[in-house]
Simulated scan of single mutants.
Amino acid sequence: MLDVPNTTEKSFADGKILQSVADGVGVITFNNPEKRNAMSLDMWEGLGHALIELRDDGDVRVVILTGAGDKAFVSGADISQFEKTRHNAQASEEYSKRSAAQRALLADFPKPIVACIRGFCLGGGMQVAMAADIRIASENSQFGIPAAKLGIAYGYDGLKHLVSLVGPSWARLLLYTGMRIDSAEAARIGLVDRVVPDAELWNATLDIARTISGNAPLAIKAAKITIAQVLKDEGHRDMDAIKAIGAACMDSEDFREGRQAFMEKRKPKFTGR
């Protein structure tokens, strides 16, 4: 496990998905280092179980996603399963259906998610990372989507995050060529938010997560909801949801606590109410 004082630890998918919680921060670890944390169907299902528990845990305010070992965040889908699970269009459709709920849960997660990326972040690993709110990468990270080298088509959900982050031109370059880029290039095009030395990656990620955890949960929820609506086409935006969470913030105990703490020159203690 990572060097963080855990209060609870659990495992899913026969130990290939690990979960821990400490000080308002939930951590999910992709734990398949022998295959550079390649994602199998059972790992997708385990990820879903871990996410649901952290979503429903009132003490958890932010979630970190990370990979076990020093070689990869997630190196992609487990290609060794493809002959059985994705060998043609029908099988691939069934595969997608079985992982659809987990992918939707990740994309629509109500709490902030921070991806802590070391080493390879390829294919399905890119899908996981791009669904996070914030991506912190080490200097030795590599990114790419080798779908064209495998004959795989990515659907709408698989590409909307990529296009929103890097734009259509870079999305085309990455997809048409299957090329890999380093973390410096990934930061330059907007694929990741911050690059740090490898030895500092975990502490840098944890610092950000703890900062988020110490802020007002309703205010963060308001930001997450509003940003999600901004990214939608105008006709599909839920302006009522934005108005409702804004009103909840302004009527909250946390808003009063924030004002009092400022006046008293002390650190606020937010409860999410």
Rank of each mutant, 00 (worst) to 15 (best):
A223T: 13
A72E: 11
A187K: 15
G69R: 01
D23E: 03
K84W: 08
L174F: 09
N140K: 14
L51C: 05
L18I: 10
L162D: 06
D254G: 03
L174G: 04
I189H: 01
F270A: 02
M39L: 11
D193W: 02
F12E: 06
A147L: 10
G67M: 15
M263Y: 11
G235T: 13
D157C: 04
A100T: 06
M179Q: 09
K111R: 02
S20F: 12
N88E: 01
E9Y: 09
A261P: 00
L2T: 13
K221T: 15
I245E: 01
G158D: 08
W202E: 12
G144Q: 07
F30Q: 00
G26C: 10
E34W: 03
Q19K: 10
I17M: 06
V74R: 04
A72N: 08
A72T: 14
D14Y: 03
D207G: 00
K35H: 14
A153H: 11
A147W: 06
I242A: 05
E93F: 08
P110F: 10
T7S: 04
Q142I: 11
D240Y: 02
R266F: 14
A22G: 10
A186H: 04
I181D: 08
I52G: 03
P268E: 08
L2N: 14
A171C: 07
G124P: 14
V21L: 08
I113V: 15
G26Y: 07
A22L: 03
G24N: 01
S164Y: 08
P168C: 10
Q229C: 04
N203P: 09
A115S: 09
D59I: 02
R259V: 15
S20N: 04
D182L: 09
A91L: 00
S183N: 05
H236R: 14
D3L: 13
A209D: 00
D23G: 00
M1Y: 15
L51K: 00
R36W: 11
A50K: 06
K265G: 05
S92K: 02
T205C: 00
E83W: 13
G26M: 05
I152W: 01
L191Y: 07
I242G: 05
L41Y: 00
Q229M: 03
D3V: 13
D240C: 04
D59W: 01
K243W: 06
A129Q: 14
L218D: 09
E93P: 01
T226L: 04
I136M: 00
L174M: 15
P33Y: 10
G76L: 09
I117T: 11
K243H: 11
L2W: 13
S169P: 03
D70H: 13
V25K: 00
E253K: 14
M250F: 13
T8P: 02
K35I: 15
L231K: 12
P146Q: 07
M179T: 11
I181V: 14
R266H: 09
K160E: 15
L41T: 02
Q127L: 13
I117L: 06
L159D: 14
A244C: 03
M126G: 14
Q260A: 11
P110R: 10
G26L: 06
S40E: 09
P197E: 08
K16D: 12
